[in-house]
Design a protein around this nucleic acid. Structure first.
Lengths: 178, 178
DNA sequence: CTGTACGTTCAAAATGTTTTGAACGTAGGG
DNA sequence: CCCTACGTTCAAAACATTTTGAACGTACAG
């Protein structure tokens, strides 16, 4: 294969590895995804292990993670009992998969915890000393800021998730904050 | 201090620590930020080390990082030679600081690398065998998808960064993709 | 000038994460 | 029914990150 093609392949894979790390995934996972994305043909576990020079065990585990994230799909090759994988190459789909299974949970959890805190502070009511009452007041303000923050995040998220094909930014535009 | 207030303080700080980790920062950094955010008064390094039960060295290093990220500010207390810190409590400001000094660079770098790849592929021109020519074609398609992706990210980023006070989602709405 | 109360630094230790590879399970070909 | 070519698992090893604390520098009070 041509040297320049190899260079392009390498830097793309490295870049996607970097990006994966950025998004909180294992870097190898990103490199596996990148390798598949830059392959015209599906690849077997051994192909992947060979190309990235990592152990087969690692490939196996990371590929299953990629599958769970909806970033790669198994491809059946007739007359071959190896497993072959292909990358989900619609990047918007990938983003939607990740946002919906990970970020959404995270935001909901945060809002949940904040809501609980507000309740707790309100229920603390009159068992508080005067100083503590001021502090509770202060906490409520800060927590309200955090709630506003996560609520906007949630709206943006749901808007992106609700968008079809390639990301529809017109819809995102409709979000407003009080 | 009232038990419920302590519980709220703790869970908020833990949550912000978690969030920090999510954003690729050290968790302690997040807890330091959270501690300051939930404190009505600025706090000294020793205060912070005591409250979080971590070493002073760690506090010192992490606070400087927080300062660099524009997430905390030094506050001068007259008649005291300790350093006091307060959190930047405008969360939109914090987000803008982070996006502008970190994500922006990242996106620009990615687009840079992708552009270089396109050039390289085009310059590879006729030194390619027929198979390699097909592969180059394929690479160009995939890279073009990546470019589209990062370009939208860049637009979204710049729009958020250009927004004033609290995030203006109307502006974000204006972004469209081809 | 001296002592003290601080902040900073950084090497070593503790801790956490990733990677490996050998052991194992399994299905399908012969 | 065995043998082989695979995929999976997981404990141990390699590696990376974070935390600590002792050593150090500095500035200020007395």
């Amino acid at each position: 294969m041509n040297e320049k093609l190899i260079a392009v392949n390498d830097s793309t894979i490295a870049g996607i590895g970097r990006l994966a790390r950025y998004f909180g995934f294992a870097e190898v996972m990103g490199r596996l995804f990148g390798t598949l994305l830059m392959s015209p043909e599906p690849m077997s576990l051994d192909d992947l292990a060979a190309q990235l020079e990592i152990s087969k065990g690692s490939v196996s585990m990371n590929m299953r993670a990629l599958e769970r994230w909806g970033m790669a799909k198994e491809v059946w090759m007739r007359g071959d009992r190896k497993k072959y994988y292909a990358a989900e190459h619609d990047l918007w789909q990938v983003i939607r998969n990740v946002l919906s299974s990970r970020e959404r949970r995270e935001v909901e959890l945060a809002l949940q915890v904040l809501g609980d805190s507000v309740e707790k502070l309100q229920s603390a009511g009159n068992e508080l000393s005067p100083e503590d009452r001021d502090l509770a007041e202060f906490y409520l303000e800060r927590i309200s800021d955090l709630q506003a923050f996560f609520t906007v995040a949630q709206m943006a998220l749901e808007t992106v998730l609700g968008s079809g094909e390639s990301l529809d930014f017109d819809a995102v535009t409709k979000i407003e904050i009080a």
